[in-house]
Simulated scan of single mutants.
Amino acid sequence: MVPAALWGAGLLAYRLPVTGVLAGACALLWLLLALWMAARVIRGRAGWHIAGAWLVSVLVAVAWWTSMTPQQDRVWADDVAQRLHVTAFDGRHVVLDNVRDFTWRSEQDYDARWVRREYDLAQLRSADLVLSYWMGPAIAHTLVSFGFDDGRHLVFSVEIRKERNESFSALGGFFRQFEMTLVAAEETDIIRTRTNARGEDVYLYRIEGLDRSQLRALFAGYLQQARELDAEPAFYNTLTSNCTTIVFDLARQIEPGLPMDYRLLASGYLAGYAYDQHALVPGVDLATLKAKGRITERALQPQAQQDYSGWIRRGIPGMEQERAR
């Protein structure tokens, strides 16, 4: 009963269609009444009317929850306004519409640009794990950047599809507050905005142990996710459908034996999980990989303006000789 009371309070706080203060007051009132009813039941002092009121309230909350449906047609924030669309894919050649290629000067000052990109998956050469920290060591946003023989990179990122003037809330993500979107973007957009515009702390790691066929399978997994979200919207969930779980789900399609681990939730430690699974550069300890993979300061240097992808990879194990062409 206590977990149900907490869940109901969160549902009211984050989904009640009233002002934040009023929603918070309603949530608090519900929580106090629910805990009072739970205490009466525990002490054996609850009559049928209290137990019945409790049951009805829970059923109403569940019915409300199940009636919520994700939408495609809200007034979206500019950076998630378009849905990634797989225009064509024959198993090798792919055409993508609405690849994001923004120029960011600050979080509020940017040039919006959505472009069409074509890729030959026979030229896939690498996949890099990107972790961006903004709220302490335990939580990071997870991205995967694919590199091609011609020097280009494409980054995939699962994010909330926030409405205009809406901001991320980890707790709100438990209560169907946000739809989910898959962003495909240039590194000069989606990574640079984190290092340069938002002031986040960003780390880059080369993923090892995948041959080209496995790289293609991982890339194709993102394309399938894009098609599903393009056809039918879905809710973001902080626990089960987020930026890290999709990477794990796709990786498990290639390596079914990957174990569950707390670091899949505490995504700030995801590099340690990948290291333990022998998915990072062998022969280099994790502390060195982390120290050399920190790209935050390099991304801010003037040289990054001319060759962002090549410059941020300078000195990273597994990428030492790599340059964008």
Rank of each mutant, 00 (worst) to 15 (best):
V41E: 04
W65S: 00
K292F: 06
Q321W: 13
K292H: 11
H85S: 12
L210D: 05
L286D: 05
A46R: 07
A140I: 06
L171Y: 12
Y205L: 05
K162Q: 05
R152T: 04
I316D: 00
Q277A: 12
R298Q: 08
M1R: 02
K290R: 14
T288S: 12
A197H: 05
D73T: 02
Y236C: 02
D276L: 04
Y203R: 09
R194V: 08
W48T: 07
Y222T: 02
A184V: 07
P259Y: 07
T240W: 10
G199R: 07
R100P: 00
L239S: 08
L218E: 04
M135F: 13
T240V: 08
Q177K: 09
E107V: 05
A271P: 03
D211G: 03
I246T: 03
L12W: 06
A291G: 09
V158C: 02
A287G: 11
P256V: 02
P137Q: 03
R92W: 11
V75P: 08
R43L: 15
L239F: 06
A9E: 06
V56W: 09
L300R: 15
I207G: 00
L218R: 00
V75A: 15
A299Y: 06
A324S: 11
Q214D: 09
R83N: 06
V99E: 05
F156W: 00
G151L: 05
S157I: 00
S167E: 15
F156E: 02
A39W: 14
Y14W: 07
Y133N: 13
R194T: 06
V144L: 11
L32I: 07
Q123G: 12
Q71G: 13
H93C: 09
V158P: 02
G221V: 03
L129V: 08
D230Y: 15
D128H: 00
I42T: 12
A77W: 04
L16E: 04
V158T: 01
D249R: 15
W65I: 06
D149L: 10
I42E: 09
P317D: 14
A23D: 07
Y262N: 10
D189V: 00
N242G: 12
V130W: 02
A9T: 04
W30T: 00
L289R: 06
M319C: 07
A127V: 09
E320W: 08
G47H: 04
D120G: 03
D189P: 01
N196Q: 05
Q82D: 03
A122M: 09
D120F: 00
G8L: 01
Y308M: 06
Q306H: 07
H278V: 12
I316E: 03
G52E: 15
S126Y: 03
L28V: 11
